[in-house]
Write a protein that binds this DNA or RNA. Structure first.
Lengths: 97, 97
DNA sequence: TCAGTTTTTAATTTAATGCTTAAATTTAAT
DNA sequence: ATTAAATTTAAGCATTAAATTAAAAACTGA
């Protein structure tokens, strides 16, 4: 694997290697969600969610659209969805610890 | 996804979200390698490699065997091998940036 | 045991993260 | 206009991570 790809991939993985951000990506697998909806599921402050969303946006993992005073977040890269599917099937099946 | 699995998975991802550790896992896909062999590929100090290997061992990602005064490292969890395959096919194909 | 390798440990320094709080924006509704 | 709701930004502090250096183990073969 060439140098640049190692850097890019580790940067991507790093951006999702946090319980809150991982949870956010799981939630966004289903459908797009507002910041407030995400906060309700994740149980932390708005500010904290906002910061985690910023990290995911800067990495290009998620995208958003504005509607009224809501911001709807969605996964931006199809490969991330695929990766999440694999991760869940490998590590989140019933019976795996 | 339940709480514990989110924690476990983010902990696993975190342990591999470092350029050196990701490179190590790529190298170990092929075959088991000694600390010195890894160092030759990765270009840092022995001490640094040793510390990164410790992180991967503590996470249960890699395992090792001793032979003479060499330590041969290998991937310990088949699921990690599968994950790496998926990651490489998604993010490391020629043509992906 | 001695010399030579390989690997680990410890100590230090520096940088990056994560959370909280508070203040600031933006937009919509009243 | 004013208020209220949703979101972002920034500051501060504590924790954690990474790299470097130096020293110390662990092991082999002579």
């Amino acid at each position: 694997m060439q140098y640049q790809k190692v850097e890019n991939l580790s940067s991507l993985l790093k951006s999702i290697s946090h319980p809150i951000r991982l949870k956010i990506l799981c939630l966004l697998q289903e459908k797009e969600l507002t910041v407030g909806e995400i906060r309700d599921e994740v149980a932390t402050t708005h500010a904290n969610i906002s910061q985690h969303l910023t990290i995911l946006r800067n990495q290009g993992v998620i995208d958003f659209r504005k509607d009224a005073n809501f911001i709807y977040n969605r996964i931006a890269d199809e490969r991330v969805t695929e990766m999440m599917k694999t991760l869940r099937s490998l590590f989140c099946q019933p019976g795996t610890k």
